[in-house]
């Protein structure tokens, strides 16, 4: 089948950028979306045109490196699926697809479809951990975790940090990302001592990074490739409020 692509091309952060139209003939239905882009890039190289830059690594839907907007939807039309796991059999001959990078003030564009998501790392460095030095842990079975808590912590911990939630949110809020980590650690007994400070510190850093505020729209949940539920945001708000009421953490208002 033939696919018509309109792709955002931008040389670097200073360039204004524009949409460019490409045709990819002979798309095989078994190709992944990124394999189709590989084929396009090989064609471009043959024509001495610079290939489209896009981030990707594992191509198994777990590293979180890939992603772009496909016709306005982060990671494209198939729910619970990263761009690398989306296959061309979900499209039909002649489809026109518009590919754009994640757009958020906190994610500056590097080139074409590649953005800088280092704000996520800084949010994690602010408090997304349990402070335990190597070697100081008790026996694994000394900390009992009810199965249900472990399962819910795992549901939240499945976040791959791709940034689709931010890209899809009209406010460019990172709440689903933040809340997934705050919930993962806050649901476990090991995470209790730092639970409130963690919520305050991570939210404060996210504000500093200029992610927007959450207004419970739910676009993030709809596009999350790991299907993380909005419930985690409620949990984050709970922890944050309790911390504020108790006067813990010294951050600006979230």
């Amino acid at each position: 089948m033939k696919i018509i692509l309109h792709i955002w091309r931008q040389r670097n952060a200073d360039d204004k950028g524009r949409m460019a139209r490409y045709e990819v003939p002979n798309v095989n239905e078994h190709m992944s979306f990124l394999e189709m882009l590989d084929v396009l890039n090989e064609d471009l190289i043959a024509k001495d045109e610079e290939p489209v830059a896009f981030d990707h690594d594992c191509r198994e839907g777990i590293c979180g490196m890939c992603g772009s907007m496909v016709n306005g939807v982060a990671h494209g039309p198939k729910p619970g699926t990263t761009l690398c796991q989306l296959h061309m059999r979900f499209f039909k001959d002649g489809d026109e697809l518009y590919l754009e990078p994640w757009r958020a003030r906190a994610f500056p564009i590097v080139k074409d479809l590649v953005v800088d998501r280092s704000a996520f790392d800084r949010v994690m460095a602010a408090g997304g951990f349990i402070s335990v030095a190597t070697g100081s842990a008790p026996d694994g079975n000394a900390i009992l975790v009810p199965k249900e808590d472990a399962d819910r912590a795992m549901d939240a911990a499945a976040c791959i940090g791709c940034g689709a939630c931010v890209a899809m949110c009209p406010n460019a809020s990172a709440s689903l990302f933040l809340a997934a980590k705050i919930s993962h650690l806050g649901l476990l007994p090991q995470g209790q001592p730092e639970r409130h400070e963690r919520a305050v510190a991570m939210v404060a850093q996210a504000n500093q990074e200029l992610f927007g505020a959450c207004t419970n729209i739910g676009e993030c949940e709809a596009v999350c490739p790991k299907e993380i539920k909005l419930e985690v945001i409620a949990r984050m708000n709970h922890d944050f409020l309790l911390a504020k009421l108790a006067g813990r953490g010294a951050a600006e208002e979230g």
Partner: peptide, 21 residues
């Protein structure tokens, strides 16, 4: 030691209903 360390860090290993690993 690895398992102990990872549990302490909050790695959500699978648990039995009793809460044990």
């Amino acid at each position: 030691n690895i398992i102990d360390q990872c549990v302490a860090q909050g790695v959500p290993f699978a648990r039995e209903y009793s809460g044990y690993l």
